[in-house]
Design a protein around this nucleic acid. Structure first.
Lengths: 349, 349
DNA sequence: TAGAGCCTGGACAACGTTGTCAGGTGCGCG
DNA sequence: CGCGCACCTGACAACGTTGTCCAGGCTCTA
């Protein structure tokens, strides 16, 4: 197998495009290496004439500084990582964008990746980002054990968790008030006369799902309503399962008269199911979504501010990086009940 | 003390977290540097016993390979860049996710940034990514002159443009059939009896907007309809402007009886305006959007497949990287007319 | 006009990794 | 019993950049 000899091994095949380096620029401009470095970085101590010569050489050769080498030397990469669940989810777009804007204002680039709700993939991704030596990490956890990040955090990687808390380590967290939001949403339904209220949410191992369920239970308990098991459905939020769950609790002898949905995907699926019903069923959903106001009836939601979550987390991250270390903190952002009609429907006879 | 100067230059202040290096691992395991490298990279030629010792040292120290250094040595970064318009736009989420998945299947990370539709920012971002030595670049152009990328492309950075063509350079492009899609959408309205059809779109300097306008004109011409200036409105797609434009063409002596909208944001705004109208106005929009089927009437759209755009572009990118260079190509993906009711309304008397 | 001080420019090492190559050990075969 | 061979291992240079330090040449002042 002569595969080893094929390559030009003397010059490791890395200069794939044969990019010019500072050395090349220096040679062409007839100056020293460090002078080129000074010009490139706008450091003082270079005569205008020399600077012009260097600049000409740079333009002529199409030189661009190799930031990998720079990073190696300087230790900071001016980039941060974002591990989220799924970029295609409309909830994470604005969050990611908010993180990006903060990063940009600090001169940093954003590297992001989707975990697809798979703890193992989250881990791989986060560690790959650490290997790139990102300065910091914003993580939307998929798993519930983040001890694998301990060495990284000790080594100086700033870390902030968003949307869900970190598992088994002490770290900064930025959350929505999932419990309070769900409780308010369900209380809203109760206030409009509902007693038999369904809850359809995500798998309870996901923190937000568990908290929202807790909010649901609390509101029911506050109203002195005994919750029946068949009113609650927790599991993957695939349209098929949610559809089945909704149909079940809407049929039978004592069907629910209202439904509280645990996130925007669930809400949309349930809206579809309700459209097919003759009977009017009240609905309040967690998470706002575009066009919720244009449906008839408009969909009442508990809105959380995805952009604010991202922004808050990113700002906290950079504060970790700039200032000294501060004790990990848990920041909870309020939610907002937006009434549009679907939650105000009275219980159908 | 010979030349024991300040400790600053002995340990330049870059090891902010004082991360262990292969050297540290080697020392602890009592082996050579290269042996550690071999273990870390799973290269053959290490005794099980040695490997175990090295692995123990790695775990004990919490060592993680520094990919910056690796990149510097190897020349390839196993990362690609994506420059898009706005991550928060629901059209780009799935596109970005599709690119990410392809990258992942090739073992690469994705670095992305938003240009916010600003050519200068697009340029900065693309060049910053090149300075990081991404292996390739997927660009959704904001500007119309990309000659600034020529040195990079020559230097070996694989480059693919998506959604809009590159300006003034020859490069791979993946587009939707904007012209044909718009023509079909408008023809659909004409087929349902409309003659006075409005067009509200983005600034004509944006390629997609121009193409869609061209499709509108073509459909009208095919039907022998003379287009009046006041039926067309091109400009920023802010809700305020779009709202005003829609209201104008819907009022006056001979108002339009149907509207074709140039992208999803415009469509949503126009849907809002139409909801406030007593008269029924037909509507076809470019781009599909979630819940379009749940509105009443359902919104008929010309759908483009954002994920397919991203996937196709990314695959093309990796083919550039893997295989040899091939001549730049222009790939056009078909659009699909999805009828849901709003386009089938007859002209209101 | 000479010495002191300032400014510019360049040589050099180091960042952490990998490719090359040479040395060293143990084993089998002649 | 000795030679070669296969296999492991480690020393070293190089990737492209930046921090440090020193060498000149210049200006300014006494």
């Amino acid at each position: 197998m002569p595969e080893t000899t094929r390559r030009a091994d003397r010059h490791p095949g890395n200069r794939y495009g044969n990019r010019p380096t500072m050395k090349d620029v220096a040679a062409r401009a007839g100056v020293g290496l460090k002078t080129v470095s000074r010009v490139v970085n706008g450091e003082p101590g270079v005569t205008p004439d020399t600077e012009r010569r260097v600049q000409e050489a740079i333009d002529a050769l199409g030189f661009r500084r190799n930031d990998s080498a720079r990073v190696l030397r300087k230790g900071r990469t001016a980039s941060i990582g974002l591990v989220l669940e799924d970029l295609a989810d409309p909830f994470y777009g604005p969050l990611s964008r908010a993180v990006e804007e903060v990063a940009r204002s600090h001169g940093a680039l954003l590297i992001n990746g989707s975990s697809a709700e798979d703890p193992e993939r989250e881990r791989e991704l986060a560690l790959a980002l650490c290997a790139r030596r990102v300065d910091g990490l914003v993580v939307i956890p998929a798993g519930d054990d983040h001890r694998y990040l301990e060495p990284e955090i000790r080594a100086g990687v700033a870390t902030v968790f968003v949307d869900r808390p970190a598992g088994r380590i002490d770290a900064d967290v930025v959350l929505s008030d999932n419990f309070g939001g769900a409780r308010d949403g369900v209380a809203h339904l109760i206030a409009h006369g509902h007693r038999r209220i369904g809850f359809i949410g995500d798998m309870p191992r996901i923190h937000t799902a568990a908290e929202r369920l807790r909010g649901y239970r609390a509101a029911m308990e506050d109203a002195g309503i005994r919750v029946e098991d068949r009113w609650m459905s927790l599991g993957v939020t695939s349209p098929e399962r949610v559809r089945r769950a909704a149909q079940e609790m809407l049929s039978g002898p004592d069907p629910v008269t209202a439904v509280f949905t645990g996130n925007n995907r669930v809400t949309v699926t349930v809206v579809r199911v309700l459209f097919e019903q003759s009977r009017q069923v009240a609905l309040v959903g967690f998470d706002d979504f575009e066009l919720a106001d244009l449906l008839r009836p408009g969909v009442t939601v508990v809105a959380q501010d995805a952009a604010a979550l991202g922004r808050t987390a990113a700002e906290r991250l950079f504060r970790q990086l700039d200032g000294g270390l501060v004790a990990p903190e848990r920041i909870e952002l309020p939610t907002r009940l937006i009434t549009r009609g679907s939650g105000e429907l009275p219980p159908a006879g």
